[in-house]
Amino acid sequence: MPGLEDLYREIILDHYRNPRNRGELDAPPAHRVEGFNPLCGDEIVVFLDVDDGGRIDEIRIAGQGCSISQSSASMMSSAVKGKTIGEARAVTRAFKSMMSIHESELDGEATDGELPASPSDDVKLGDLEALRGVVKFPVRIKCATLGWNTLTQGLDEVATGA
């Protein structure tokens, strides 16, 4: 049986205790999108401020959930803040690939006519690597990806003007 230390790495607990980019933005002008995990009741709200050039100027995370969903969302916010939508999608793909979820399962890809993102190998995951151990706990993968799915939905909505 995988041990707790495989799941709860120190950096994960740090993001859980001290979440980055926690809070809300006024929406509008910011874009607000909610994500739910219907199995466990976790809820995440992502606020996105995307500039005219398609760059994520600001991101805030609200909602409540377990250490894995909260820390993953916190790390996600750090990873995509200041990035373009295309870059954020590339990180998302790389993260999901690490979670053993592959491209064909991702919805709403490239609806805004971007070039295909670079292969996952080229994307630096940095702190996010700490979440790799989640794969050993398949039930928790949904916790780790909740924020990312919510971000993807938000980026799709921004791109299509929804």
Binding site: M1, G3, L4, L7, Y8, C40, D42, G65, C66, S67, I68, Q70, F137, R140, C143
Partner: peptide
């Protein structure tokens, strides 16, 4: 401690 995390530790 979130209930999921409680349950995860108890599972050990």
């Amino acid at each position: 401690v979130h209930p999921h995390d409680v349950s995860q530790v108890l599972d050990q």
